[in-house]
Amino acid sequence: MANPTIAVLVGSLRKGSHNQALAHALEKLVAGKATFEYVQIGDLPLYNQDFDKDYPAEGLRLKDQIRKADAVLFVTPEYNRSIPGVLKNAIDLGSRPYGHSAFAGKPAAVIGASIGAIGTALAQQHLRNVLAYLDMPVLGQPEAFIHFKEGLIDEHGAISNEGTRDFLRSFTDKFLAFIATHTAG
C-alpha cells in the first residue's frame, strides 16, 4: 500500500507531552511514506452505554477518523502502571456499541515514552490486551519502550540520538510493511 493514512492516538493531553513529541518525531521519519492523522481525544465525553442509541458528535467524529484510516498508531504514556483513562475512554467510544467497532480489523502499533527506566512497558502490555479483544492485528516486534531523556528530541522535533533514530526508523518501516500485509487485497 502506497502512503497509508495512519490514525494517531496519543494518550497524553499535557502541553509539552513526551508522547506527543514522540508521535511528531515518528511522523518525520515516515515523511513521504505515510500520512499521520492525529485524532483529538481530549474533548470526548466519558463513555456511557446510554450513548449507544444516540451517539455524541465527538464519538461519531472519532469513529469516522478511525474508519477512514488504513491503520492506527497508539502512542501512550504510562499512568499508575497502565494506560491513561483518556486513551481507554477513546477506545471505549470508538468500539461501541457492540458490533459497531471502528477498530475491528485495523492494523495497529503501540509505542510510548516515559522518563522511567522501563519506559511504558506495562501500559503497552495492557493496551495490547485491549487491542486483541478489539480484533486489531498488532505489530509484535519490535517493541518500543522509549526512555525519554532531555535532548532526545531536538528543537526541530527530530530524534537527536542516532541509535534511537535508527531503531525508530526500523520500527516505522516494520509498521508500514505490517500495514501493507494486513490491508492488501
Rank of each mutant, 00 (worst) to 15 (best):
G119E: 01
A90Y: 15
T181C: 10
K33C: 02
K106H: 00
S101F: 11
I118W: 14
Q40M: 13
V86N: 03
P84E: 12
Q124I: 03
T181N: 14
N161D: 15
I6D: 06
S17C: 09
R165M: 06
I66C: 06
G140A: 14
N80G: 03
M136I: 03
L139T: 12
G185K: 03
G85W: 02
A2D: 10
G157V: 02
T181P: 09
L134V: 13
D135P: 09
A57W: 14
R165G: 08
N89K: 03
E143A: 01
Y47A: 11
M1D: 08
V75R: 06
P45I: 10
A2W: 09
K88E: 00
F175T: 07
K33D: 08
V8Q: 05
R14P: 04
H156F: 14
E150L: 15
L44Y: 08
D135V: 09
H24C: 02
T183Y: 12
A21C: 05
A21T: 00
R14Q: 08
D92N: 10
P56Y: 05
N48S: 15
G185I: 04
T183A: 07
Q49R: 15
K149L: 12
R165Q: 11
F51Y: 15
K149A: 13
P137G: 04
Y55T: 01
I6Q: 13
E37T: 13
D154V: 10
K88W: 00
L13P: 09
A144S: 12
M1N: 03
V138P: 03
L46R: 08
D92K: 03
D50H: 00
A104G: 07
A25T: 00
A104V: 10
I41V: 15
F167W: 04
T183V: 11
R81V: 14
R67Q: 11
L46K: 12
V72W: 00
K68Y: 11
A104E: 08
K53G: 15
D64E: 10
A108I: 02
G112S: 06
T164K: 13
F175M: 07
L131W: 06
Q141F: 01
R67P: 00
P77H: 00
Y79I: 03
F36G: 09
H24P: 06
G11I: 08
K15D: 07
K63R: 09
L44T: 08
G151R: 05
A104C: 02
L168I: 04
I146S: 02
L139S: 07
Q49W: 12
S12H: 12
L134Q: 14
A123I: 08
P4G: 05
G157Q: 07
D92T: 00
K63N: 05
P77L: 08
F171T: 08
D135Y: 09
P56A: 06
G94L: 09
S160A: 15
K33F: 00
F175P: 08
F51L: 13
L134K: 07
I115M: 08
